[in-house]
């Protein structure tokens, strides 16, 4: 399909191959589309597997049992499936993690974007990035072999495996995430807003706490939620340092088993495919997925609701 315009004296010199370029455009579009489609297909595949196996699990174990049992012993003869045993451990490690990561991450973000001189920033930022690049298995051993013995000197009754040190190291692991995303949010608050506050006689501290942080709130909250999602899904640290003992309760001093640690335990064992124990890991996986999905949906809603639009 070509469009004909009246010819000019130099028309003969110009012969673009419109047909070919249109074909190339189409092919390129298809290739890019196919690659984009892969991520959607993968997500759908994961969700499909999860739902399918979880459904089979609930044919054998009632949802009521799953939600109300106070024991988690799927591998025992008298199997009990109280998911809240695992959830309580995950909630505990993640809460401790966020209690560590929120102040550390947010304060370093403020320091980086508002106070640091280029020189300090040049040291701080790479240091944070290195923290983000440490393999989680290293963090796990760090928690088990360094933090726990250290904490045992101050915290009486702290056992060798415990949620406290796992949670704290988990917090250190997600700190770079909080710091880097919060810094982006703080940094993107327009200069004009800061100038407006300064021009009224605000000090730097007043400008940051009363104008910059509220303006960056949506970004900071979404960085926190993303970090919580990471903490909930993190496996290695809690498996290594928090223990393998399913136990209901919120005592951070004793060994517990998080949802991810359970999945590791079963996946590494010789549980036959199709058995009930095998299906439980899908039920637990589904629970994990639901929780992180809910968090992401909340974060999405929150950002849309509270984002300030600047030009």
């Amino acid at each position: 399909m070509t469009t004909e315009f009246p010819s000019t004296p130099t028309s003969d010199l110009w012969k673009p191959n419109r047909q070919r370029s249109q074909r190339v455009e189409l092919i390129v579009k298809l290739i890019f589309g196919a690659f984009a489609f892969v991520s959607i297909v993968t997500t759908l595949g994961i969700i499909e597997t999860l739902i399918f196996e979880t459904f089979k699990f609930f044919q054998e174990v009632s949802l009521w049992q799953f939600l109300t049992d106070d024991k988690w012993t799927p591998l025992f003869k008298s199997a009990k499936f109280g998911i809240f045993v695992l959830i309580s451990a995950t909630v505990m490690t993640s809460t401790i993690a966020i209690l560590v990561a929120l102040p550390l991450g947010l304060l370093s973000a403020i320091c980086l974007s508002e106070y640091a001189t280029p020189k300090v920033r040049g040291i701080l930022k790479p240091a944070l990035e290195i923290l983000a690049g440490v393999p989680t298995v290293v963090y796990g051993y760090f928690a088990l072999l360094f933090v726990t013995p250290l904490l045992q000197k101050f915290v009486p009754g702290l056992q060798g495996f415990n949620a406290l040190s796992a949670g704290m190291v988990l917090g250190i692991m997600i700190t770079p995430l909080v710091a880097s995303l919060s810094e982006d949010a703080i940094y993107s608050v327009p200069r004009s807003l800061r100038d407006g506050a300064y021009a009224l006689g605000a000090t730097k501290r007043e400008t940051i706490t009363s104008v910059v942080l509220p303006a960056a709130l949506s970004g900071i909250v979404s960085s926190l939620i993303l970090a919580i999602s990471r903490a909930i899904g993190e496996t290695m640290i809690v498996t290594l340092a928090a223990g393998q003992n399913p136990r209901l309760g919120l005592n951070p001093l004793v060994p517990v088993m998080t949802m991810t640690a359970f999945i590791v335990q079963v996946s590494l064992g010789d549980t036959p495919a199709g058995s009930l124990a095998y299906k439980t890991i899908y039920a637990v996986g589904m629970t994990l997925f639901t929780i992180t999905l809910a968090l992401n949906v909340f974060s999405f809603w929150f950002v849309r609701r509270f984002r300030e639009k600047y030009e």
């Binding site: 100038d195 407006g196 506050a197 009224l200 509220p214 303006a215 300030e308």
Partner: peptide
């Protein structure tokens, strides 16, 4: 006091 080029009310 100062008023700027672009209106910059606080959020």
């Amino acid at each position: 006091g100062m008023v700027f080029q672009k209106p910059n009310p606080f959020p």
